[in-house]
Amino acid sequence: MDYLWLKALHIVAVVTWIGGMLVVAVTITAASGGRAQQETAMHSAVLAAVRRWDQRVTSPAMILVWILGIALALTGSWFPQGWLLAKLVSVLLLSVLHGGLSGRLRGLSRNQQPSPPPPLRYAAAAVVVATFVIVILVVTKPI
């Protein structure tokens, strides 16, 4: 496939994935507070909608990010370069965080574990910081 098409589709998948992860991260923080626990009807409807979006849109977008990203890296023959390796590690950590958020969301929708473990409380901030690092790495290619 043409490089520009690969790049465009990769960016679409990234935006969809990062946006979806932020929705899950914020929902988990909101649904875990003491007050939110009392508003159960709205709580479960919102959790179900976010979970559906995560399963049907955000998770497939993550897989597409990986497939298109690897295809792009092969097309550009960038493999041993430092910026790409650093970017790969950052995206792997984001994928791990997404797995944690997804599992947590499922636990919450089953009314388990009332408050999020400390690391997930900062998940939204971590997603923004990782996105910042990844974009700087890929645009400026500093190493």
Binding site: M62, I63, W66, I67, I70, A71, L74, L92, S95, V96, H98, G99, G100, L101, S102, G103, R104, R106, G107, Q112, Q113
Partner: peptide, 22 residues
């Protein structure tokens, strides 16, 4: 190589998701 890369990420992602449920 790329097929294995995607399968590895998917495996780690699903494992973390399953483990996070307790």
């Amino acid at each position: 190589g790329p097929v294995h890369g995607v399968a590895f990420v998917l495996y780690v992602w699903m494992l973390i998701q399953t483990v996070s449920m307790g």
